[in-house]
């Protein structure tokens, strides 16, 4: 394996327990090809409304990037060649095919695309993991951040007369997601409560053992025999 590449069965970021993860589970039987038209639409929108993105990626035309929403059962392949850019949805990807991979929960990836969160901060706190060619990822991050994407605005602008119904649907969906997120959080807490309790008890036990070990070591240093 080359350094910096994804091992086949490693998930560098654990997917958070979220509505997206549930959606991902629901999407598992769906063939990625069925989702492709959505991504064709997104690419069309990006090319029309944010030509700067490909412009900023011009030096990295031959470096495809894999975007891996860790809570969904598919990955997205971005080929930034300005003459023939592609956004392809696939079940999985061979690391050899791409210059770099970005792993993160969908929610984080979308917030990043809209410039609502700081990519460096996400990386520092490990909510985002990048592998492979760091340069192309930095370029993509900067290009997207610089575009000023606002997904709801951008998509509704593409929809013409359907914009208004889309907007109200979208904001209702965002509200709904927010509320589901709260419920899910409650559910998650309830589900993992016993495990947390166990783990807390274990931690306390480890702390106690460490303290005992320290005392023993000190004694050993001072007196030769513990």
């Amino acid at each position: 394996m080359r350094p910096g590449q994804v091992r086949a069965n490693v998930k560098p970021v654990q997917p958070p327990f979220s509505p997206v993860l549930l959606l991902g589970m629901a999407l598992k039987p769906v063939r990625p090809a069925l989702l492709q038209p959505v991504f064709d639409g997104v690419l069309k929108m990006l090319r029309r409304r944010h030509p700067d993105i490909l412009d900023r990626m011009a030096d990295y035309a031959s470096k495809p990037v894999c975007i891996n929403p860790v809570d969904l059962p598919f990955v997205i392949l971005l080929d930034p060649n300005p003459d023939d850019p592609r956004l392809t949805v696939r079940r999985e990807i061979d690391p050899q095919e791409v210059a770099a991979t970005i792993h993160g929960p969908l929610e984080v990836l979308l917030a990043l695309a809209e410039g609502k969160v700081d990519g460096d901060a996400l990386f520092f706190t490990r909510r985002l993991v990048i592998e492979g060619d760091t340069e192309v990822v930095v370029a993509l991050r900067n290009a997207i951040d610089g575009a000023g994407i606002d997904l709801i605005n951008d998509i509704s602008a593409e929809l013409g007369p359907l914009a208004r119904p889309f907007r109200s649907c979208a904001s209702a969906a965002v509200d709904l997601l927010g509320r589901i997120q709260d419920d899910i959080e409650t559910l998650r807490t309830a589900l993992i409560a016993p495990a947390v309790k166990d783990s807390n008890a274990q931690n306390a036990r480890i702390t106690q053992l460490e303290a005992e070990l320290k005392t023993l070591r000190k004694a050993a240093r001072r007196g030769g025999v513990a």
């Binding site: 910096g4 993991v129 990048i130 760091t134 340069e135 370029a139």
Partner: peptide
């Protein structure tokens, strides 16, 4: 410290940055 010369490697212990 340009990105072109940066490499992150995932290991069992964590991440190594080069």
């Amino acid at each position: 410290s340009p990105a072109s010369d940066v490499r992150y490697t995932e290991t069992n212990e964590g991440i190594t940055s080069e």
